[in-house]
Design a protein around this nucleic acid. Structure first.
Lengths: 217, 217
DNA sequence: GCCTGTGCAAGTGTATGCACTTTGCGATGA
DNA sequence: TCATCGCAAAGTGCATACACTTGCACAGGC
């Protein structure tokens, strides 16, 4: 239930600013309002939706400043994960990371954006888990979820896939030689670039939200 | 409602492992089960309580490994906040931080643990907000909340208050001269010490939880 | 013509009832 | 004596009903 609504937000079906009507959602998922309400409360605690007392919930609309702050957090968190991964990953994890990264090169050559996106998500998840610190993994993945709606279109930018892959390569290289500082720097730079690539689409997303605010929907 | 239950957890009235019975809580706060359920869902999303399907909620009982991970995250997050504070705090914020820190010296001389604890919380909050990055502030404060139950008794250790103050002094000094790296290092060391100071009480807390598991409560 | 007050509608907040899952205890069998 | 099955009680999951808040529209007065 939570997953279902969260997916609609994270995948962009429900856009920032959209009203999340309890009865509509209840009808759509063919349950009563109660589970919907509880799901919305959870999503509210996660920060994905914004609850206004007696006025319902909307998909969290973040200001450009807050979005920048989330990307900044993401860069810092990824840097920590990369550093800890370089220091703590087991030999098996390092091998798996490198193999996985090599395999994704095929996606780059083919220009397969969607497939590469899945590889990309998996790559970063390995980084988070390689830190061997459950709570850091947790807050990093939570932040990623909140950023997901704003990051989707980044691979549409020309050459973004190829550049992303080469940035990954730097991170992998640093981890393989156990250089935590280099891994952290590479990861931070990587996310910062994603931030800039995504910022291009923010204004587009905002005007869409503005459209939704019009009477005609 | 959420605040009320969270307070019982954060202040240690409800201890890790305690069952959070919906009907009991509903009677205690003189409301029906529905708002209690929703509050528990939110607390579950925050990580303060652990929800088991069809088996109710308990105050999250963290393994020593997970606790260590949370303290580690805290150290990293505080380091980030300290670094950003050193780089970004306004002149007014710096002045206020220094003044506040000086005033707390009185608490140290008097050995007033409880008052110092309030000052301490305020001090760290200033650090988080000085980073001028709403999301970093948010996740840092969330992590602090989750650690609160395990950190309460740290100031009972001999000289901990005085040492804490001098550690704060180092952080303040680094921030005043805009030295981000030094501020980060000092903050990280400070939290690491808190981690060790608190670890002493973890076993005590665990045996208390074990007692609660006994039929006699 | 504009502003203000009242009424209505939409939708949230809470209470309560019922069904279902789980767990503990007891009984029966090997 | 121990294990397994069954039953009962406790408690959660969901549905529904009702009260209350809020926003908007329309009408009346200034």
């Amino acid at each position: 239930m939570v997953r279902a609504i969260a997916d609609r937000i994270v995948t962009g079906i429900a856009r920032p600013g959209d009203k999340l009507d309890e009865v509509s959602l209840a009808e759509r998922f063919e349950v009563s309002r109660t589970p919907v309400r509880e799901a919305l409360r959870q999503l509210g605690a996660m920060g994905l939706v914004d609850q206004r007392p007696n006025r319902g919930a909307i998909v969290t609309v973040v200001s450009p400043e807050h979005l920048a702050s989330m990307f900044e957090s993401m860069a810092e968190l990824e840097a920590i994960c990369a550093r800890l991964s370089a220091e703590r990953m087991t030999a098996a994890e390092r091998r798996a990371l490198e193999t996985h990264h090599r395999e994704s090169a095929r996606m780059v050559r083919l220009g397969a954006q969607d497939e590469y996106e899945a590889f990309n998500t998996d790559f970063h998840t390995r980084l988070y888990q390689g830190a061997h610190s459950p709570h850091i993994t947790e807050i990093t993945m939570a932040t990623r979820s909140r950023l997901a709606p704003f990051r989707r279109a980044q691979f549409r930018l020309p050459d973004r896939v190829a550049k992303s892959w080469s940035e990954h390569a730097q991170i992998v290289a640093a981890i393989m030689r156990g250089d935590g500082a280099a891994a952290a720097a590479a990861a931070k730079a990587h996310v910062s670039i994603v931030s800039e690539a995504s910022a291009v689409f923010v204004s587009a997303g905002e005007s869409a939200a503005a459209r939704n605010a019009l009477p005609a929907q």
